[in-house]
Design a protein around this nucleic acid. Structure first.
Ligand code: FES
Ligand code: FES
Lengths: 144, 144
DNA sequence: TTTATTTCGGATAAATTTATCCTATTTATA
DNA sequence: TATAAATAGGATAAATTTATCCGAAATAAA
C-alpha cells in the first residue's frame, strides 16, 4: 500500500510528535531504534520531511528533530504521505491507466474510487496529534 | 496500490474473459497490445495465472489463452490479486508491523482496517464477468 | 513425419526502491 | 577559538521489481 519510505516517515513523525509534546528533541539513531527502521535510510526520509516543512531539524550539538507544537495538531497524515509517496495512491488509476478519468474509466474505476476516496478521507482526517496520543497512552505501538 | 504485475494480470484476465465469451483464444502478443503492457513480462504473468488455475492455456498451433465459461462468472478479482501480489494488501499492517494484530495495533490500525476491509470486500465481490461486460459494451477501457 | 505455431521456462538485464557509508556543515560549549 | 555533537547530502551498494531474450516443449496441420 505505502512504500517502506512512507511507512518509516509516518512512524518517525509520530515518534517525533510524541517527544516534541514533551519538549524532547530526538536523533535519527533514537528514531530508527524506536520505529525499527534502518538508521541512514530513515535519516534521508527525515530530510524529506524537513524540506516539506513537516518536521523541524536543529543542527549541531543538542540538535535533533522536533515538530512545532501547533503543527502536531494540524499536520495530517495525507501531508506526510504526499511528501514521500506523492498523491498517486489516492488520485491515480487502480489499474495504472495514465490518468483516472470518469469519461474514460478502467474496468474497476467505479468500485475502486470508493475505496480510494475512503483512503483519502482517512488520511486527510487523521492528525499526528491523534496518533501520538495513542502511542503515549500505550494503546498503540510503533514496532514489532 | 497494486504492483505493475498485478495491474497487467487483472487487465489481461479481463481481456481474455471478453474474448473467451466469444470463443476466441488470444496470444500474449495480442493481449499486451490491447492492455498496453510489455509482452514478455505479460507472458510471465499469464503463466502465473495458469499455474493458479485462473486462466487456461493451450500450447501449439491455434493455441492461446482462454478462460472456461463458468470460471468467467465465478472468478473474483481477489483471486487474481492473491495469485500475483499475495494477500498482504488486505491483511498486512498499513505501517509494516510484522503482523496486523488487534492486540498490538499500530497507530493507524483502527482507521486503516476500515479502508483495507472495504478493499477486500470490493475485490471479493467483483467478478471477471462484471468487468468484462463493461469492456464489451464500451463503458470501460483497458488502456490509455 | 516434418513444419509452423505457440506456450513454457530459464537466464539475464534494466530500472526502481531500499539501504549503507563517508564527509561536509552547523552549532553549543568548554 | 578549538572541540565535540549533531544534521545534511553525495556516492555507492544491495535488494526487489520490472522487463527482455532465447531455446525447449507441445500441438495442429500439411
Ligand atoms: S480509471 Fe482506473 S480507477 Fe479511475
Ligand atoms: S496493526 Fe497496523 S494496520 Fe493493524
Amino acid at each position: 500500500m505505502f512504500s517502506k519510505a512512507c511507512e518509516y516517515g509516518i512512524k518517525a513523525a509520530i515518534f517525533i510528535a510524541v517527544n516534541s509534546s514533551e519538549h524532547r528533541r530526538v536523533s535519527p539513531k533514537e528514531i530508527s531504534e524506536e520505529i525499527d527502521s534502518p538508521q541512514a535510510f530513515t535519516a534521508k526520509i527525515l530530510q524529506a520531511l524537513v524540506r516539506n516543512d513537516i518536521v523541524q531539524s536543529v543542527r549541531g550539538a543538542h540538535g535533533g528533530f522536533e515538530i512545532e507544537k501547533d503543527k502536531i495538531a494540524t499536520t495530517k497524515l495525507s501531508q506526510i504521505v504526499f511528501a514521500i509517496d506523492g498523491d498517486n495512491i489516492y488520485k491515480g488509476c487502480g489499474l495504472g491507466l495514465h490518468t483516472c478519468d470518469e469519461n474514460h474509466p478502467c474496468p474497476v474505476h467505479d468500485k475502486f474510487k470508493v475505496v480510494r476516496e475512503e483512503l483519502r478521507e482517512m488520511l486527510e482526517n487523521t492528525t499526528l496529534e491523534q496518533l501520538a496520543l495513542d502511542i503515549k497512552s500505550g494503546v498503540s505501538f510503533l514496532k514489532i
